[in-house]
Design a protein around this nucleic acid. Sequence first.
DNA 1: GCTAGTTTGTTTAGTCGGAAGACGAACTAA
DNA 2: TTAGTTCGTCTTCCGACTAAACAAACTAGC
Lengths: 406, 406
Amino acid sequence: MITMQRGPQPADFADVRATNLAVVLRYVRGHAPCSRAEIAAATGLNKATVSSLVADLIERRLLRETGLTEHRIGRPATMLVLDGSPYAAIGIEVNADYLTAVAIDLAGQQVLSWRRSFAGLASSPAQAATAIAALGRRAVNRVLKEDRRVLGLTVGVPGLVSPDGVVIMAPNLGWRDVNLRDIVNRALGEPDFPVAVDNDANLAVLAESRYGAFAGSQNLIYLTGEVGIGAGIISDGQPLRGHRGFPGEIGHITIDPQGPPCACGRRGCLEAIAGITAIIARVLPEVAGDGDITDLQPEVDEVVRRARGNDPAALRALEDVGRALGQGVSILANLLDPEVVVLGGYFVPLAPWLLPPVEAELRARRIGPEEGGAKVVASILDHGAAATGGAATVLDHVDAGRLPRL
Amino acid sequence: MITMQRGPQPADFADVRATNLAVVLRYVRGHAPCSRAEIAAATGLNKATVSSLVADLIERRLLRETGLTEHRIGRPATMLVLDGSPYAAIGIEVNADYLTAVAIDLAGQQVLSWRRSFAGLASSPAQAATAIAALGRRAVNRVLKEDRRVLGLTVGVPGLVSPDGVVIMAPNLGWRDVNLRDIVNRALGEPDFPVAVDNDANLAVLAESRYGAFAGSQNLIYLTGEVGIGAGIISDGQPLRGHRGFPGEIGHITIDPQGPPCACGRRGCLEAIAGITAIIARVLPEVAGDGDITDLQPEVDEVVRRARGNDPAALRALEDVGRALGQGVSILANLLDPEVVVLGGYFVPLAPWLLPPVEAELRARRIGPEEGGAKVVASILDHGAAATGGAATVLDHVDAGRLPRL
DNA sequence: GCTAGTTTGTTTAGTCGGAAGACGAACTAA
DNA sequence: TTAGTTCGTCTTCCGACTAAACAAACTAGC
């Protein structure tokens, strides 16, 4: 099927070829190992065409033959698998308290995963970009040392990012109007692979739709459970982009007009109730108020410890938080009708206590029929979801037909 | 550009042809009258190809030559325009208090617009379907009498509609699990054109994106201001569908936990504050409470009269309603980043009093930068927006390359 | 009026890529 | 050994776009 974009975008043979190459590539991604005949039968493409396409993909080293089937009637089939090895895509995730770098090969195998601490708010954008570029350069070198070509590098940032890679604002990093893509691109020496910058929730939801528990879902939402709460939305299989590229700002929905004050100046925003700092302040009042944002993992661990120990105050607090979160999720579910809402970030370790009130709230506020309604689950990806998504977005271009030339 | 769907969807020459036919058709729709040479220059297609495509479209009577240019250097160009006349698409809108039928030709010209009263809640689904089919049959006959072929008929219903045309629930009609598409299709005698059923907000937003003040926008939201409040969403030029096909349920967001009770059992839902019956109850307490839903236009007219007369209670009530609506719009704007939110239905006559508080609330709750943020406007289409959208959705299939065979 | 220049749209030849079907290869079953 | 089955390639054909030449129809200017 050929679909239309806004402007006049005529199609020609190159498009047909690219489409069919991508069809074969994606079929093998999902059904490896498989034979040419199987691909032809499943896709409807002619056997000869599949042979030609596969030859092309093998020549580009995107596919590899991997032996014959045996003990079957008829001529044995030569099986095909993705050959991820010659290529890799890199994703880097910027957070208020740490950086993550991930590289995955074409087959989706993680070939690198690094985490280093990072003082986001304490760094100027230039310093931060230097740190990001340094991490990126190290990742690139590592990948090159393994004889892989780098297909692209995408940076995820918790904030509003314009389509051309300018960070319009990132409150938790203290940035405004930083052209991060250009800076990183220059710091990497204008490499021959594309450098992109995107919102962390957008990237995380992409990772979730590829490698999460509901991989393959066409309609899912990812909630970042970090200092702020943002939503990444995949609708009909495509990331929702919006007019300016700033969708997913759900953190400042008013949940309780009499609730705690929020940094935005209002009271009772979702973020002010269910953001991780708000949770910590509520459960661990004794450590709250020191203000500076460092790696919050120790505090989260302590919250988990208290909940595990059935500390009544902690349990009550988490139930309140879960109800608030459930209200937010209900709005998302009724408005966007997703198949699943994935809770990410620091919500993951707290999920055993958050999920029941979230689900109760969702049930109570559901408009549509029960069956098929939105499920809520905790992410099975770790904190590197946005970084993984950054790498996945690079692979998406390949899957969509932009094959790397040899 | 060829984009990918979920499954393996190979492309071949027919797809290329269909794509390019649609490219030409859509170019002429947007730039008529224009010449073949102009189309070739603008689209990048070869002149010979454009000639071939245009010949094809003329043979199908989708385009028409309309004379030559004069007084220009060089050979005069033969101008092309859309030839809407041989075809028409029909849309029917079901409301709690009336039915609307609209037919438009391929050029987007309205060729028919009827409104008849209809007792939605008082009718059984079978009776209602009979009424709908009767109206549809009359519209079809009228169109056929004008020597037009009917390309399709789409019915808009205020409720949850599954992709195969089953009305899962429509509270304001009292329907549950009604296979309206089959019923109407049978009542029309299994015609050779497709019959579809869709949610009214989905159709209205489509009409808005084609014929409204922001026609052509790729990211817009339409709020139905009827007895309930639903949202139709167009994102990246495509209607947002959701996992089950039930997006846009915004009416039961909690705006004020201490607000008036809602039919859903909670308090202070958006619909319970800003739905048209709630507005009437607030501004005209003396007429409220009679319960049965008839055509509400007289009551709305009275509300407008009082607001025009600067009745303080009415003005205060409308400002409160506007603020509540503004909260709902803010959630939409921050979550989906639309270019514009269009207020429809009974909100249109009340817009002069609703828009200022809505905009104030939106400004106060805006997360992203000011410039380019969501605008809020009243629809310039009348109550038949969903019907017009129903017809437009039929034309969309043509524009996407599914040309009618002669 | 005639010629040069310009623009339009068609014609012709060429290329590309997928479809259809024949065919050889390589296996199992009997 | 033979029949049957399946795989993958080869050959032929066709449809659709491109490129380039060309005819048609006009204006401008002498």
